Amino acid sequence: MADKLLPLKSELLKKTDMFSSLLDHELEVIADHSEFRTYRKGDSVFKIDEPGDALYIVRSGEVLISKQEPYGPVIDIARFIDGNCFGEIDMFTESDRGVSAHATGNTELLIFPKSGTSFADILNNHPEISARILHKLLAGISSRIRSANALVKENSPIIQELKKQVYRDKLTGIYNDTYLLERVRKNISIGLSFALIISKPDNFKELNDEYGHEAGDIVIKLMARKLRDYTGDDKRTVRYKGNAMAVMLPDVDRDEAYNAAKGVQNFLKGLDISEVTKGKKFKLSASVGIALFPDHYTDPEELVFKTHELPLIGRNRGGNCILFPEDGAE
């Protein structure tokens, strides 16, 4: 039985760079081994670690590509809209998916090859198509590499601005959690010992309740700016999440890390926030978590995640605590 959608499939395939060089009869072969599939909002297209055995072309709607960071947030990587093709590299290299994909709304995709069909078998049966597609794929990858190299060489100010957008916290201007995790990963990869200190005010909710969330944002900016001045090193001071502030100290022992954490705690307790409270007495109380590499953790994500949990444990114990991981055990 003839596939009534074959012309529509061929037209969509022809518009993608990978299949644009195929002759009409070759496009029909690819179209005949493709299928349309519809998705509703939130439906999974594929999940991380699934076999990369197909590529996808968006006929309508949108697909979001994302990745779950271990012990961290889900990071949005890319969005694909009408006419975009994705998943082809995994299919050609027979690799498992390194990311997840889901529909952000009602979406229709053209999938090649269709269920029950092997990409390798198709190419073995049609070697001339294989050669054309492979040539297009390699040309596309080479073009992307050349473009990226040109961007780095010719537009270094743009690269610097991109780094600022990626690594700087928009509210406070200091470094953010993305920067922190990369620094932790790098230090662990080269075997550089360090301490990570993460502090959180115990009574920040009371501040927000009494003076409002705008006042809370002002205090966060004060904390960030003053803590950076206190540490004397922009690259050591990070806004991790919400009102949590992090400080990294290279090559320190347990006692030195504790003394530094005590200093951070005292700094927060003594922070002048009278501009927010309009003269009313309100002093921050703070709990602080400390983890050492390699003493406590050797996995970057786990080290950051577990250290961030310690001030929360301290707050639940009444606040004003300084805790190492072994102190946080119930």
Rank of each mutant, 00 (worst) to 15 (best):
K226I: 01
D209M: 01
A131S: 07
G72D: 05
I273T: 07
A103V: 01
I188G: 07
I322A: 06
G232E: 00
S100G: 15
E128F: 04
P127I: 11
V264Y: 00
D295Q: 05
N203C: 02
K164E: 15
R79N: 07
T277G: 00
A54E: 06
E275S: 01
L181D: 03
L227F: 01
D295F: 05
D209Y: 00
V238A: 04
N149P: 07
A78S: 13
K306A: 12
I133K: 02
V238L: 08
S20P: 13
R239I: 12
L138K: 03
L8T: 08
Y71M: 08
F282L: 00
G42S: 14
D217M: 08
D202T: 06
V252F: 08
I190N: 11
L151M: 09
G83A: 10
G319A: 15
T237K: 02
F92V: 13
G116M: 14
G83W: 11
D233L: 06
L222G: 01
L222T: 12
D209A: 03
T298F: 03
E210A: 10
R40Q: 14
E330D: 15
N320P: 05
G263T: 09
K200D: 08
N259K: 09
V29N: 11
I81T: 12
A260G: 07
A120M: 08
L12Y: 04
V166E: 14
E275C: 03
E256M: 02
S274T: 12
R79I: 06
P70F: 02
A195N: 02
I129Y: 04
R317Q: 13
V288M: 11
L27H: 10
F324P: 10
K4P: 07
F324M: 13
S66H: 05
R144S: 11
I198R: 14
P70N: 00
H102Q: 13
V252D: 02
L5Y: 13
T16V: 15
E161P: 11
G216D: 04
V45T: 13
F204Y: 09
Y230I: 00
R254T: 06
D24T: 09
Y56G: 03
P201D: 11
N259P: 01
Y297S: 10
P73S: 12
M18V: 05
S143N: 03
V264I: 08
L162A: 15
E108M: 04
Q165D: 14
T93D: 15
